[in-house]
Design a protein around this nucleic acid. Sequence first.
DNA 1: CTCGATACTGCAAACGTTTCCGATGTTATC
DNA 2: GATAACATCGGAAACGTTTGCAGTATCGAG
Lengths: 335, 335
Amino acid sequence: MAITIKDVARESGVNISTVSRALNNGYGVNPQTRELVLNVANRLNYRPNRVARGLVTGRSHSFALIVSDIRNPFFAEVARGAADAARSDKCDLVLCNSDLDPIRQMEYVKSVLEKRVDGILMNSVAALNPEEQRQLAECGVPIVLLNRSASNRAFSTVTADNEAGGVLAAQHLLKLGHRHIAHLTGPRQHGNMTDRTRGFVQTLLAAPEPVNPVVLYGAFNYEGCRDLTNKLLDHHPEITAIFAANDVMAFGTVRAAMDRGLRIPDDLSLIGFDNIEFSSVIHPPLTTIHQPKYEMGYAAVEMLMGLAKEKNNRTPESRVLGVELIERQSCAERH
Amino acid sequence: MAITIKDVARESGVNISTVSRALNNGYGVNPQTRELVLNVANRLNYRPNRVARGLVTGRSHSFALIVSDIRNPFFAEVARGAADAARSDKCDLVLCNSDLDPIRQMEYVKSVLEKRVDGILMNSVAALNPEEQRQLAECGVPIVLLNRSASNRAFSTVTADNEAGGVLAAQHLLKLGHRHIAHLTGPRQHGNMTDRTRGFVQTLLAAPEPVNPVVLYGAFNYEGCRDLTNKLLDHHPEITAIFAANDVMAFGTVRAAMDRGLRIPDDLSLIGFDNIEFSSVIHPPLTTIHQPKYEMGYAAVEMLMGLAKEKNNRTPESRVLGVELIERQSCAERH
DNA sequence: CTCGATACTGCAAACGTTTCCGATGTTATC
DNA sequence: GATAACATCGGAAACGTTTGCAGTATCGAG
């Protein structure tokens, strides 16, 4: 059917091994025959079969990206970074959506392992039981975890400096003179969230005039935080500033505030986390903590490619990337 | 290294061919030996090597998704649908971002062809010259194009009914009593855009009391449409309703209106296209034309999987999915 | 009891590469 | 001028499967 290395060997009168060497810029092949082979290959429109190649080399030049949902703008950005990094080394990315369902997650892992990917980038193993985690750690291919503090030493990680982000948010609010501050976040015990929360709360408590924030736990999404904000303001009308654990939650706060006739930032200061694209589009443009999402994806597969090359001595690495306060228009001085 | 079919064959005392048959639910294998083999495979934790399998069967069970940028929420949604469809048949998706750059696009096509994907889903071939398009059409694997009207009969397509969407938008604005209407869209000659524009304009012109809309061409993004809106309202202050070619553009219009002290929908009605997630989050929640993005992705790879199975007689198919008016709060009756 | 059909299984080729090894021819060294 | 080093190339094994073909055993029918 398709034309193979044999065809170009026959056509150029050499052995297939010579063709292979010529094509792979290999040494030990006469420049003239090399050029000849290249010409023939070109003329026949020869396309090497990478799966045959992979079978013998044992490397597939592809990586798996297992995220909870690519529709989450955060992961889309990470995915783009990951794909670009892969491309820079002629690798590619297979996309898997787990919805954080442990079953799906393990299914995908099994599937991509059978396809012999060279590494896996996944965003969470929290839902997995210890047995599954052990299984993962010993699966033979490098795995890097996204935005999980390196709790499990078996895996490599790349993460944003979530704690520093919390600190930044606290400092900003403090500087603006706020004294009645709340923090709205997701379910308790969510790994990287606690880092943000810790940085935020501790900074507030350690201030010259310490403030003890009220922190509420809810769902991680728009509606959840809309409800959470209403609950908060019902019980704590004195609050003048809110730190939401991510931008989408902050949007929920914006909506709740609007419904209550509160103006942002005049009546209520608000700060988010992530700096997703729409945080600058919404009204008012959201002050937030920027997470280097693209860079995280990029760094993660760079790390994977490095690990894939050293089959022996594969010690997990960890990398934490800096965050940044993006001042827009959702925060004001307390009046 | 990894354990292979030979290991389980040796361990269970049968030939590798029997193992293969037993594992593939093949007929012609004794139920007892089948169970034996299955047990051994399980005990040894055998994982079939899909690349070896692919080498002999000629099918890789993977598809390529080439979009301009996965960070575009539209494509993220499509990707999710595509990935889910692939998963339903134990296939997977490799993700490629072309930025609509013809070079990148062809590079990716070449790359995934060498990896022997079973099909390609791509969002545009408009940037490609005829020679490249011909090359694509004859590449040997099925290709379906996303949201391109079937201009090139060589490819399969799945698309939303863009023209109907334009009609819907026009009817809605007409019903609300608007007489001074504008349409803001992307660069001229953009394939599927002209469908939306045509449906919109023709419906307006064909009304009992025809209205001749002003249509402006600009860039496809937030900033572009913000500028476009300002230009529009500078020259046509009489306008009371705007149809933006997509939601992100509509967001730009929202921003421009706000800057000008115009209130939506009181002073200006606005209708978007796409129904991306954030269109319900923004203020005011955007009335828009819903495109079945997830379903489009899903349908596209279903189509690919079908085509992949019939190696012969591969006639391009086309499928157009319905759109829907989503009424929210950015449109009001003309007062 | 024989024979053909049937169920099961083994053998070996094939898929398209890479790569080790050895063969040959060429050049440099003394 | 012999030998060693080197460059170039071909032969063949290997990667881990699937699958067509043939062989054997079992079984029912006549």
